[in-house]
């Protein structure tokens, strides 16, 4: 069942991000692990593309422990916004560590800096995991402003983006509106596959 779900997710992700510039994925928290697995497996299969994975939900070390195949890939760089704030001081040449998830300008700059090293002919993709976690550390207004800026800057540089939004019961509906800034929305439901 889980494998079928992950395969289904990979297929949907693949179709959505090759057609649209920015894709928002809304998913219930119970499907979060499956979705990140599907995403990361998809990235591993796309070695000819350049990927930047921004993690605000799990520390980089944790992601690597979970998905060991990622550590050897040269086409994916990570930006970790939470390890430093949590007192984890590891360093890794494959990951940029941001001091705090409140430092949104720094995050925006580092995303662009990483893509600067990628040649123009390579397809570029950004994963933002996740918008809902970013709102835990920041006010909604500033995350909205950040996301507008980011969308403009990534579009100008022909970077495709995938933003995750973990839906929780009772979550402010304003928060959900953020995800609608994307060109395409995928809603993960039990009937998804």
């Amino acid at each position: 069942m889980v494998n079928t779900l992950i395969d289904g997710l990979k297929e949907r992700i693949s179709k959505a991000i090759t057609i649209n510039q920015s894709v928002g994925i809304m998913l219930p928290s119970k499907n979060y692990s499956d979705l990140t697995q599907a995403l990361l497996e998809y990235i591993c299969s796309r070695t000819e593309d350049a990927w930047v994975y921004v993690t605000i939900t799990k520390p980089y070390d944790n992601l690597i422990k979970q998905f060991g195949d990622l550590s050897g890939l040269e086409n994916i760089k990570f930006i970790d916004c939470i390890s430093r704030a949590a007192g984890i001081s590891n360093t890794n040449p494959n990951c940029v560590f941001i001091e705090s998830p409140t430092m949104l300008e720094n995050l925006g700059l580092e995303i662009i800096n990483v893509f600067k090293n990628v040649d123009d002919d390579t397809n570029k993709y950004l994963i933002l995991d996740s918008l809902s976690t970013l709102v835990i550390y920041n006010d909604l207004e500033i995350v909205t402003e950040f996301f507008y800026h980011l969308a403009n800057r990534t579009r100008a540089r022909n970077i495709h983006s995938v933003s995750l939004m973990i839906e929780e019961e009772g979550v402010d509906s304003q928060l959900n509106k953020l995800i609608y800034l994307n060109d395409k929305i995928l809603k993960v439901r039990d009937s998804f596959i």
């Binding site: 300008e105 700059l109 800096n113 207004e141 500033i142 402003e145």
Partner: peptide, 17 residues
Amino acid sequence: MIISSNNGIELAPLLKS
């Protein structure tokens, strides 16, 4: 203004919210 060991001083638009 961001100061990093790799790039020294860099500027980014300040979020106003």
